[in-house]
């Protein structure tokens, strides 16, 4: 797994308050991890800062699962 993916998973596990090892790509951000609007903002800002990238509104709107985030970051 790349460094980018590791960073992504660390940020998600911290915000969702779950162990890094329990995260699976198919997990849904809202239904499974309880990522509400404020937490989603935290997630996006922290990932942008950690990986020095910018996420567009269109990209953000498509993010529904852990796997969606990983795919997006791998493609950048």
């Amino acid at each position: 797994m790349s460094d980018k993916s590791e960073t992504v998973l660390e940020v998600i596990s911290k915000l969702a308050n779950v162990s890094r090892d329990t995260l699976k790509p198919e997990m849904e951000l809202v239904a499974d991890l309880g990522i509400d609007s404020p937490k989603a903002l935290q997630l996006l800002v922290e990932l942008e800062e950690a990986l020095d990238i910018e996420i567009t509104d269109e990209e953000a709107a498509r993010l529904e699962s852990v796997g969606d985030i990983l795919s997006m970051y791998e493609s950048k």
């Binding site: 509400d36 609007s37 404020p38 989603a40 903002l41 996006l44 800002v45 509104d57 953000a60 709107a61």
Partner: peptide, 14 residues
């Protein structure tokens, strides 16, 4: 609002 379009709204505010 938190239930609809909340994340996008918060990002715009930010």
């Amino acid at each position: 609002s938190p239930s609809r379009g909340g994340t996008e709204g918060f990002r715009r505010f930010y």
